[in-house]
Design a protein around this nucleic acid. Sequence first.
RNA 1: GCCCCUGUGGCGAAAUGGUAGACGCGACCGACUCAAAAUCGGUUGCCGCAAGGCAUGCUGGUUCGAGUCCGGCCAGGGGCACCA
Length: 849
Amino acid sequence: MTDRDEKPVSRFNALKADAAWQKVWDERRTFAADDSSPKPKTYVLEMFPYPSGRIHMGHVRNYTMGDVLARFRRMQGMEVLHPMGWDAFGMPAENAAMEKKVHPGGWTRENIATMKAQLKRLGFALDWTRELATCEPDYYGHEQALFLDLLDAGLVYRKESSVNWDPVDMTVLANEQVIDGKGWRSGAQIERRKLSQWFLRITQFADELLAGVKALEHWPDKVKLMQENWIGKSEGLQFRFALSPNDSGAGEVEVFTTRPDTIFGSSFVAIAADHPIAQALAAGSNQVADFIEQCKQGGTTAAELETQEKLGFDTGLRAVHPFDPAWELPVYIANFVLMDYGTGAVFGVPAHDQRDFEFARKYGLPIRRVVSDGDKTAPDFTDSEAYGGPGTLVNSHFLDGMDVADAKRAVIVRAEDGGWGKGTTVWRLRDWGVSRQRYWGTPIPIIHCEECGVVPAPRESLPIVLPEDVSFEIAGNPLDRHPTWKHVDCPKCGASARRETDTLDTFVDSSWYFIRFASQPADKPFDKAVAEQWLPVAQYIGGVEHAILHLLYARFWTRALNHMGMLDVAEPFAGLFTQGMVTHASYYRGEGTDLVWYNPEDLDFRDGGAFSKDDGQPVAVGRIEKMSKSKKNTVDPTGIVDQYGADAVRWFMLSDSPPERDLEWSESGIEGAWRFVQRLWRLFDGLAEAEGQDSALDKKLHRTIAGVAKDIEALTFNKSVAKLYELVGAIEKAPPSASRSNAIRTLARIAAPMVPHLAEEVWAKMGNAGLIADAPWPEVDPAMLVDDEVTIAVQVNGKLRDTLTVAKGTPRDALEAIALANAQVQRILSGALPKKVIVVPDRLVNIVA
RNA sequence: GCCCCUGUGGCGAAAUGGUAGACGCGACCGACUCAAAAUCGGUUGCCGCAAGGCAUGCUGGUUCGAGUCCGGCCAGGGGCACCA
């Protein structure tokens, strides 16, 4: 590669140029954003990384895209905020602490240092003066203050909630750490435990969050849809059935339905196993208790739920139909009813709900049609599955003849008039549980006092700093075990009290970091006026894996601040882009438990196959998939950057694949990028002044300036790359002229956002003062974008037969005449008259024969 | 099961309803070289000597004209999920 340098051909020395210009940018603070700049401001942000150890190709791709946009905006004359920081709390640090006997803080800070150097090596135009790490008290202390603000605003509450408890490690596990019901580390059987935990009232904003996401024009539809589904708004009727006999202590049961129109088709009521009525019955009946126990067994995975049989237990209770006191419905405890959605109870309409249908079949309950299906209107329902489609209400008394929507409204009106129910909206979205029984997170600023109960930590005591002297040798939460940390006096009564030893979910840390980037005073989380100068983030770029949680939580947090009057901005990210993954073929031997993955660096590729360097024997070529440590199909960016230079790596990341799609890493791809960088260099190296105009090249240049600008704004970098290839090809072919020399000089600025090191190098070489990073984007002469000749397609019956070059604006009848006189057309018509001629000026002539 | 996205050369891909395959990778031929690397020039959707024909997952339709719009399938990927 770079070291096969024998001939005296001028080469771009990327290693030298990268280091030199990165140093200059650093020293001059070229990319530090100025809060008081008079220029228009814009905020370009990529999702900040978790400091896991080293950066990977996914980071390189993500940050290259943001970097090109940031540099382009600067050249357009904008003051750009493009910061970087570290999402530095989280479990991997604790795992490392346990496995390697290191402190999570030390491990994290070392990783940050390593990764920061790696990012700098790529020459990203980042404002490092605003760097932050969420694990430092000068960040999380402000987060604690914001938590107290939310508490004051009534947006925080405490509630019993169940967690996965590992009895051996004495720790709480996340769902993904529970494998087949056992702890991932200990292998112990996991228990469900109830703990008192902190919740944020995200559901209070459900309506706003839903309306807000729909209004975001510059977000991908895919992400908007995912958020809408996650919030999950359902409108319906919540109403009560009176129960008889009324001796269970519960005189009625409340249900929620989105289909109140089908109320006359109901044939049973079903309640969840953990519904209070079921629990009350269980207290007096072993049979009920046994059934509830049975419901709790069985997995919760998709596949299991799919196949799981619907089970019910007839409680003997009867629900009285609200429209007919003589009509009683059996009340079942059923395994398919969820306690935490709606009211934990449903009324079953077997004919029009598939689950209810299956349940009714199993327990021999009536199945009665109340919505017509085409011309099927009879009450006897003989179909093999429930009908959930539209239709007219039948067999439904006063609802007969209405359509579904009208009938829904009619029932709700009756229920509200009768005082036994009301129209309600139910959300899938749940409040956000933020308590984590972990050490490496933001301490929740709360003190528990025997006398005063839950007391907020005084603001002047913030930041409540994590103790450094902790050990992970023993099981359990180190904060809880610490000899002194949790012991404090109650701020209210002065008695001995204890700190909350839970820490905040790390999603809290990432819910406001973009605000802290915009403004970071020492004495408060942010300055309203300064932050508002930059917010909302104009373009946010990151992986689609954050499409729901992170983006929803950040939107909620921003709305909460807005609600509290702390920020005028309601939506944090005006533009969102989710980029694809970087993928690579994987290589393996064996299968099942013997499966072994091979790193491509340990393989030889010959004869169309892959062979281990160790034993020379072949290995199987697996799927092309996301680079991951477990599949060993990663390529470390640092070695590649040292080999090819930052610009070639950046160029490759932008080439070929549309940015939202996956990019397959390939050796030939990066080599191609490297060759192009050298090709650019030769062009600049051979720059000489010449005379004369080349108007075709002038046009190509201006078209490229306009086209590349448009592509960068649309983040379609693959297209801007293609346009640059075309321009370079055209320049190379063009004979010397003033136009050609000018095109080369201008090319430096067009390519600068993508290959900034080379651009700075040639900019200086061409004798320009200052940095190309500060140079303006070249201006487009609109006159240059207009053609005076156009190529016209000549079609017969829509098939291309020939093309003609004519002056732009040639009138229709002239075009028609030229086309009809065309030899190809004459041949095909062979004397016949055309039936019709379609002329689209400057485009085509279509002759219908 | 529901919702969404994607199917175009050997590969990554372009294409306001108007010349399908720009641009790149790879491959092949040639120039330079003792030779190679690098570089430069050319060819490269398929069938055919050619004329020409066939080609955007399959299948209908709308249109003078469909990769693009509409209907029905098929395949791959993603999200959600006993959500009432």
